[in-house]
Design a binder for these strands. Sequence first.
DNA 1: AATATTAAGTTAAAAATTTCACTTGAATAC
DNA 2: GTATTCAAGTGAAATTTTTAACTTAATATT
Lengths: 214, 214
Amino acid sequence: MKERQNIPKATIERLPLYYRCLDKLVTFEEVEVVSSKDLGGRLGIPSTQVRKDLSYYGEFGRRGVGYNVVELKKSVGKILGVDKLWPAVLVGAGNLGRALVNYSSFEMMGLEISHVFDSDLSKIGNSINNIPVKSTKILEKIVEEEEIKLGVITVPAEAAQEVATEMVEAGIKAIWNFAPTRLYVPEDIVVKNEDLAVGIVSLIYHLSWQEEIE
Amino acid sequence: MKERQNIPKATIERLPLYYRCLDKLVTFEEVEVVSSKDLGGRLGIPSTQVRKDLSYYGEFGRRGVGYNVVELKKSVGKILGVDKLWPAVLVGAGNLGRALVNYSSFEMMGLEISHVFDSDLSKIGNSINNIPVKSTKILEKIVEEEEIKLGVITVPAEAAQEVATEMVEAGIKAIWNFAPTRLYVPEDIVVKNEDLAVGIVSLIYHLSWQEEIE
DNA sequence: AATATTAAGTTAAAAATTTCACTTGAATAC
DNA sequence: GTATTCAAGTGAAATTTTTAACTTAATATT
């Protein structure tokens, strides 16, 4: 595999799309080979973009033929690191937290929410998808023992920083943050903000612009 | 307000962040004026980016002084179209759908989920956050009657296209799609894919890369 | 009142990303 | 066997986006 430098962020965001599409091709359609044009077409991405994205990591296709679906899926899975399951802790057993724990398609993407925590006594002890909700007091212990690297934050914005700090102290290296707030963490910790409210605004922006020009 | 052309998508994604930050400043801190440096600092965005983003829409600050927080919030809200509430229908009363209906911070961003639908008979009639779940059969009727423009899809991937088509036929103009699949809709319909599984992969990518260089 | 400082707005440069045009290689048709 | 078509890989061009440098305006300081 080539050096992983100077690779556009946008490329890394597209790779999971390729990966899931390839998975669909493997599972539902029994095609052996797919072209960049076909793969891109299914995702609304130009074929040349598909080829360029893949070219950052190596040569996966055969000229004049296309890509072997099974092989490419395996390769992209390896590139992304989703060829193994990454255990994760989730803090915040509210509606969103519960939804994520029950979300079935994460497993395919390498995510396994192994432990759920909350500070609310009324929630501790309940089970979500067969995972018991534990007190945040034992977060550190579990993260250390099981050497968990991934943390998911689904607490309200006010509590998010505290949870993040606890996670980092426990040894978490990457945080998926659903709280609508910025987290301050050491440089070597990766944070991905999944800001739901932001997503809707771009739609509203378009709607309100549409109305204006009507 | 200036022409809304050639404005980077990234800018439109940052405006909601400014908006929420300004809202916090208005509500919790009683500062009257904020500089681009301060505003950007709170969000991890360079001051020059903040100024450039705003400059696409007009002049909102005073040189040597900064931006009036209340005024700028109002201006950005107007730009985004979140100065009014946009009623929306949500289809798919599963875990994620329920989580979104209960998500309190949407209102600030102009989204009001007014109706919830599902095709599952066991779900119809239940209430989520005081909103009764209705049969998808009456989706079209309600969307037409109330002239609703916004649709949220939280059904499984297999059902998403069908729901999207129904929405479009009913008169929906913008779709917020949580199903991990591409939707085929007419050109004038805006779709925003909120692909949860994609978000986690960029974290896993970084983690697996980190391990490799250790 | 003149000067220094602060900070928005803007133009130009730099960087990043996408698209294009081309080359190479494989399969098929003639 | 040669020609044609298909499609990956790639370097360069075009585009987009960000960053930097500069100009202008407001306030505070001496």
